[in-house]
Every structure is written in structure tokens, then in C-alpha cells.
């Protein structure tokens, strides 16, 4: 079976795996916010990114994620980055510049691209770490927990959570089935790899239609199975999975908030360490 783009849960028993999913979800969101913080100077910014990168590498080490996995996740972004660089060079016309022939290239343009690039890598890395150390189901529970307040304005949070968890449950089943349909169609002479765009689209349609039909069939079966086992979306249910905040979660939360708060304070005050040193 093919791996999902971002990363799959790896079943290691590490510190990161044991952390509560709710904490990890919060941590990832905060890290993604923190990535966009600006400090007093460019040097400070990049020192901070360096610090985050070191943290990422440490987390990856703990979670048994290989650097290669991160590189593979970044790979599809090269094209976008080059495109972004060209746009930046053409649009940004401020600050100092150097010249290639008569054409000015502004340092600001290069730095803008670099910022985006580093931020994207960091965000990808954080989501990679989250998905590799947290079961999709636990993430769903965490999401449900955070969305719980919405039940007061009549949002059916538990139904949404059930839908997400069923979707997650059926991803491997449907992938396997898509694979089987692909082989079946290939054996009938459908060519998925070569040919013009139109032929390719036609080949894909021959895959998608049976997949849809089968998915609908599955969902009716599933609805029957859930109904006879007494599922009532609007009824009262007890829960098998109950999440507990452990001591490590509280401690981690403390460190996370301290880190986040510290960085925010540094950013707001605009302190530049390098200005003191130099």
C-alpha cells in the first residue's frame, strides 16, 4: 500500500507517542503560529529558525523519523519555490541590490523567498512529527474535544467526529480497492501511464466510477451494520476511549507555553541580541 503524503503513524512507544493527542494538536498549532513571528532583525529571525530546526531534528530523532522522509515531503515544493523566487525577484524592488548584467536583483526578494521556504519546511516537519506520533483516531478525539464547546450552538460535533473516524477507517480499505480496480482495468488493456491527456482522463474515469459505486455500496452496508448495533446519531452514548492528561502532558504544556510566551515577548519588544554584541 502506498504511503499517505504527509506521513503515517509509526507504532513506536516513544515519549512523543505517549503524549496526549490534545496537547500535541495544540503544540503543533502554536508552533505553526510561532513560525510566523518576526523579531527585531533578520539575523534574529534566522537564529530563531535555526533553533526551531534543531528542535525539529531532536523531535524527529525521538520519534524515529528519518530525515529522508522530511526531504521526500519537501520534494514536490521545489517547483513552487523556484516560481516564488522568480515572482519575488520581479516584484520586490526595495532595498539594496546586486546586478546580473543590467538586471537588478534585490536582496529583499531573495530573503522573502527564503523565509517562505524555511517556514514551509518547518510546518511540514511539525505536521510530519504529529502524524507520525499520533494515531489518526486519537487526533479525531482531540479535535472532538476542542470542538466540544460548539455543541452549545447546536453543532453536531460527535456526529462530525464519527464521520471523520469512519472516513479514516475506510482509507486503507478504499486504497486497497483502488489498487485492485487499477490492476483489473490494466489487465483489460487500460493504460494509466502513457497517452495524451484525454486518454489519461478516460483511463482514470474507468477507475473512479467503479470505485464510487463500491464506496456507496459499502456505505449502505455500513449504515445497516451501525443501525442494527444500536447506533443512534442523536442518542446518548457512553465512550470507550477516555483521554487523561498525564503529568508529562502538564509539564510539556508548561514548557510549551513558556517557550511560546518567551518568543512572543521577544518579538513584541523587538529586542535584537546582535545589536548588543556588534
Amino acid at each position: 500500500m502506498k504511503a499517505l503524503p504527509i506521513g503515517r503513524y509509526t507504532n513506536y512507544d516513544t515519549f512523543l507517542n505517549r503524549l496526549d493527542a490534545r496537547f500535541k494538536l495544540l503544540a503543533m498549532i502554536l508552533f505553526m503560529v510561532v513560525v510566523f513571528i518576526h523579531f527585531g532583525s533578520r539575523a534574529m529571525d534566522f537564529t530563531f529558525y535555526g533553533l526551531l530546526m534543531v528542535m525539529v531534528l531532536v523531535f524527529m530523532r525521538i520519534a524515529h523519523i528519518r530525515i529522508r522522509q522530511l526531504l521526500r515531503a519537501i520534494k514536490p515544493m521545489w517547483f513552487m519555490m523556484i516560481f516564488l523566487l522568480i515572482i519575488n525577484v520581479l516584484v520586490v524592488q526595495t532595498g539594496e541590490a546586486f546586478y546580473i548584467g543590467d538586471f537588478p536583483i534585490h536582496y529583499d526578494a531573495l530573503f522573502n523567498t527564503l523565509y517562505t521556504f524555511v517556514r514551509l519546511i518547518l510546518m511540514l516537519a511539525f505536521s510530519l512529527i504529529l502524524t507520525a506520533t499520533t494515531k489518526p483516531m486519537d487526533l479525531t478525539y482531540a479535535l472532538e474535544w476542542y470542538l466540544h464547546p460548539l455543541t452549545f450552538i447546536k453543532v453536531p460535533v460527535h456526529i462530525i467526529a464519527m464521520v471523520i473516524s469512519l472516513a479514516l477507517r475506510f482509507i486503507p480499505t478504499l486504497l486497497e480497492e483502488a489498487d485492485r480496480f487499477m490492476k483489473a482495468q490494466a489487465s483489460r488493456g487500460v493504460d494509466f501511464e502513457n497517452g495524451k491527456l484525454r486518454e489519461k482522463v478516460r483511463a482514470i474515469i474507468s477507475l473512479i466510477i467503479p470505485l464510487f459505486v463500491s464506496a456507496i455500496q459499502r456505505s449502505t452496508d455500513l449504515a445497516d451494520a451501525m443501525e442494527v448495533r444500536g447506533y443512534d446519531p442523536n442518542g446518548k452514548r457512553t465512550r470507550y476511549r477516555i483521554m487523561h492528561f498525564a503529568k508529562r502532558d502538564v509539564l510539556s504544556l508548561f514548557f510549551l507555553l513558556a517557550f511560546f510566551g518567551g518568543m512572543l515577548a521577544l518579538s513584541i519588544c523587538g529586542i535584537d541580541f546582535y545589536a548588543f554584541i556588534l
Binding site: K135, Q217, L222, A225, D232
Partner: peptide
């Protein structure tokens, strides 16, 4: 098509949850 939970545990629990 009748396996509802993410794991064996969760699937057996599904009916129990519905029964409160």
C-alpha cells in the same frame, strides 16, 4: 463493511457505547 472501529477493541466497544 461491518467493521466500524479503528481497532478490534474499538469495534467491539462500538455496540457497548450505543448501549450506554
Amino acid at each position: 463493511n461491518q467493521f466500524i472501529g479503528a481497532t478490534v477493541r474499538d469495534d467491539i466497544a462500538f455496540g457497548l457505547e450505543n448501549r450506554c
